[in-house]
Design a protein around this nucleic acid. Structure first.
Lengths: 205, 205
DNA sequence: GGGGTCATGTAATAGGTTACATGATTCT
DNA sequence: AGAATCATGTAACCTATTACATGACCCC
């Protein structure tokens, strides 16, 4: 019997967690949520597109985490259905959010995949690409830095930029790792390049 | 007009890149691929389950990146179709892999999402959870370290553990960040806790 | 007053995961 | 001989992304 790792959520899309979290503050209709998400630039942290939002809202309603309250219509615009959090939903959002904070998740960043296959490249080429990566990383770091500084200049409390600070920490680590990797490959004493190249000849004509 | 960022791949599942990469070494049938992926423990780097593999192979065939070669049958086992890389497929794998190495991708780690919503928790609770996170991170670091050391002890060239080294770098950065964050919240001089708590009262009865 | 783009939502399609199926092999 | 597990694949079911629709508002 296995321990119940990361119990399967009835709705697993992270967008749903955002929706639940916004609904804590009161009932909203989907478009309002969509708007709040865009305004807070949550799209940088949570995969989000218009279509998925409606889907997620449906799923949440079906799962009993939110309930449709009323359907109003204003002028000739389409009807808007207002949803409110249920008790269940409230519990789900707390439990989910707490879980994410306390338990690091196993993720699948693309660069991990790339590294696991990088042996298929010739070492010289790999080094070239890694050098380019360094530059791109610097670009992203600068960009993100600007974002945070911009918010700070507007008087936003750093609590609301904390996810971007985390990104910066990851980017810095990525950069340092990439640099180290280049060094390991190209070290003239006992770098990997020679052996890697030999191994490469043999399997890739 | 927008610059063509990360041109959309006809098949975007990373599992497909792994398949293409393995096929560089010669034609294989799907089960063989499945087996190789499992043996190399690629499941840690690339989201993989049995079902998706067959799907991805189909997609690749439809896209013209691989072609069915022959259909053999052995004893009474189901037929096995052997696939080979096409010229197009060969190009795709190089282009894709190079792209992933040189260009850092915007990702959506779950913890980023959690941080972007963490304001919904009471600061004291958040700190507790972050402390727990530190322990779990240490656990994962130790585990991963063991994995790498184990391989190394078996004489595996470090090139083939490089993706796990990268993970270690990220985990270390995560740990350092988490520690810093706890400190920022709890600093007795000008920690965020007080203001955060006030702000929290107001919106979460 | 016609061309964008905002507001609001539904429907069609493609993608991914789980469950199901079934002969073969191996273990006890 | 029956149980477990391997080998191999298909089908059903969710999920997620795109495309489509349409009235309102705003800009020149």
């Amino acid at each position: 019997m296995k321990e119940n790792r990361a119990k399967k959520r009835k709705v697993s899309n992270l967008l749903a967690l955002a929706v639940l979290s916004y609904l804590v503050q009161g009932p909203r209709h989907p478009y309002e949520l969509s708007r709040m998400l865009r305004d807070n630039d949550d799209g940088r942290s949570i995969r989000f597109n218009h279509g998925s939002l409606y889907m997620v809202v449906q799923q949440l309603a079906r799962a009993g985490f939110i309930a449709a309250q009323e359907t109003t219509r204003e002028g000739q615009r389409p009807e808007r259905t207002v949803y409110a959090l249920t008790e269940e939903g409230r519990r789900e959002q707390r439990d989910w959010l707490c879980g994410l904070v306390e338990e690091p998740q196993h993720e699948y960043p693309q660069f991990v995949a790339a590294l696991s296959l990088i042996g298929a490249l010739h070492p010289d080429e790999a080094v070239g690409l890694l050098r380019r990566r360094l530059e791109r990383l610097d670009g992203r770091i600068a960009q993100t830095r600007d974002l945070v500084d911009g918010a700070s200049a507007l008087g936003v409390h750093p609590l609301f930029s904390v996810e971007e600070e985390y990104r910066l920490a990851l980017l810095a680590a990525d950069r340092a790792f990439t640099e180290r990797l280049i060094a390991q490959i190209t070290d003239p004493e006992d770098g990997w390049a020679a052996e890697w190249a030999r191994f490469h000849e043999r399997q890739d004509p």
